[in-house]
Design a protein around this nucleic acid. Sequence first.
DNA 1: ATCGACCCTGTACCATACTACAGAGTCAAG
DNA 2: CTTGACTCTGTAGTATGGTACAGGGTCGAT
Lengths: 136, 136
Amino acid sequence: MKPLSIGHVARRGGVGVETVRFYEREGLLPKPTRTLSGYRQFDEEIIGRLRFIRRAKELGFTLNEIKELLSLRIDPSTTCADVKVRAETKIADIEAKIDSLKRMKLALVKLTKACSGRGTTSECPILDALDCEEKS
Amino acid sequence: MKPLSIGHVARRGGVGVETVRFYEREGLLPKPTRTLSGYRQFDEEIIGRLRFIRRAKELGFTLNEIKELLSLRIDPSTTCADVKVRAETKIADIEAKIDSLKRMKLALVKLTKACSGRGTTSECPILDALDCEEKS
DNA sequence: ATCGACCCTGTACCATACTACAGAGTCAAG
DNA sequence: CTTGACTCTGTAGTATGGTACAGGGTCGAT
């Protein structure tokens, strides 16, 4: 296998060159070997790793969580169950976010329903609700 | 009305002193008058404004959006309908976020269902799915 | 030999919403 | 008059996930 330049792996992994260097700094990618002139030399599997990162990001994992997933995979003593736990934790996180957003939405919907859409801002129930007079 | 110190409005508004100064810098609060020695002098209504900001944040508005809401309220030519449009836009934003999170969750649930939780990471369907072999 | 495309490091910057100082001045109570 | 609580400005740091240079060096083709 001939080594690939950073530009190559970036293109094929669907990220920018700067992003590859950023991931390397952050420990998501191993330190690659270098040519005599200092150029990074990657091999094919790094492209898979970049795609892994992209997919995990799409699933809502942060870079730190992805780093953990990657280290789980590398450590031979971890089991499939360990990975499953991470995924389940992430599902719970996502559910909590969804609930919170639903509550926000409900509150806003209530406000817009109360609002006729007519008149000036001085009689706007939306702003009034946010105002929440100190009197109370 | 006697003027209030920054510490007072911060406590009563439910935020920190630094946050009040930050909001002032960001244009969410008007520049207060000062004592001869340079201390800020707020009046009661600022506490309401701080609560307005807190509530709007809870509803998912960013500080920039809140700044707009506040300026809408101040500008006498804007109508209640203008505010309603902002609220409806925010509802649509929130719905989009919820949908995106639901898709993430679904994908993760599928993966965890495929995963027996037994065996080593080399046979983990979750990691495999993220891997997405280059062969394909 | 020269040109453009690529690569290197290091630093600074984007948005978001604060938070944490340092180092100084002020105010009110005892 | 001292002490402690409070305030001031200005700067820098937090986490997140990068992006954008500047100012160089290198590689391959012509």
